[in-house]
């Protein structure tokens, strides 16, 4: 454990020197501010407090930003060490590859956590400023924060795996962008097209909700929508959110986070320096 913490400390220091912490915090805070300034969520639920509405719009923001931040931080993790030539030496030390990876993981998760706290904190402060009853939305905000971390963890793991498989930072960056496009953008577009083509048939009611769970970004969206009173915009997702209990969506998110790390470790173990 001391070895994991040693690695994590060093990675956090590197993240600060490389301005990663500053960039991530600025990005999250800026987007949260813009969302708050824009006023209300697109749905503008009657009766919902201001914070719950903000959380709903933050959710649709986090689905894009959190995976992006996680992939940006992780794609260089293994490929960068190979490129710099720092990997062989560290592998001769009495540390396991799992410990090396866990150190990076903890550090990057901490950076992500700081950025999320800053962003969501800004949004919460803004909500409280306009609506004294915003406290009703606090549980939703906490749920959003925790599930965002899980979503980030899943994509950190995926980023490490891509990094280890690609071996070169350039290739890893390309693969990370591809991963983001597929999981965050194309997957949903594909499902949407299928739902439209199906026209409310067996696919839409039977298969579609489960396909949503097969993608961590959708599991995240589903969990926050299902758990929240301010239901989301997309009718399809809202419908699915009624079929799938929030606890299931959350446990799948956990599985994704753990699975991402396991995948990363598997890929890292195969790397020959």
């Amino acid at each position: 454990m001391t070895r994991v913490m040693a690695g994590a400390g060093s990675e956090i220091r590197i993240a600060m020197r490389n301005r990663w912490v500053a960039i991530a915090v600025a990005m999250m805070a800026l987007f949260a501010l813009v969302l708050s300034a824009a006023g209300s969520a697109p749905t503008g639920q009657i009766g919902a407090d201001k914070l719950s509405v903000t959380v709903a719009s933050l959710t649709s923001l986090a689905v894009y930003l959190v995976p992006l931040l996680a992939l940006l931080m992780s794609f260089d993790a293994v490929a960068g060490e190979i490129e710099r030539g720092t990997l062989p030496l560290i592998l001769t030390y009495p540390v396991s590859r799992g410990e090396i990876l866990a150190g990076k993981f903890l550090a990057h998760l901490a950076v992500l956590g700081i950025a999320l706290l800053a962003g969501y904190g800004v949004a919460a402060v803004a909500a409280f400023a306009f609506d004294p009853g915003a406290a009703a939305g606090l549980p939703a905000l906490v749920r959003l924060l925790l599930s965002s971390l899980l979503l980030g963890a899943a994509f950190l793991g995926a980023g490490y795996a891509v990094s280890a498989v690609s071996r070169r930072p350039g290739a890893a960056a390309g693969a990370a962008i591809g991963l983001w496009l597929v999981f965050v953008v194309l997957y949903d577009l594909g499902l949407l097209a299928a739902v439209v083509a199906d026209g409310g048939g067996a696919f839409t009611t039977g298969v579609f909700p489960w396909l949503l769970l097969a993608n961590p970004a959708d599991a995240f969206r589903l969990y926050n929508l299902a758990a929240s009173e301010a239901a989301g915009a997309a009718a399809g997702v809202a419908g699915a959110a009624q079929t799938i209990p929030p606890a299931l969506a959350l446990s799948l998110l956990l599985v994704w986070a753990a699975g991402g790390f396991a995948l990363a470790l598997l890929a890292f173990r195969r790397v020959r320096p």
Binding site: T2, A6, S10, R13, N18, P88, L89, I90, V95
Partner: peptide, 30 residues
Amino acid sequence: REATAYLPENAAFHPALTGREQIALYLRLR
């Protein structure tokens, strides 16, 4: 691994760390 020390040919380190921080990391790993 605990018994062995290695100096690779063209030893490389993370450019963003100071010498002290880099050695401190290696110390803690051992």
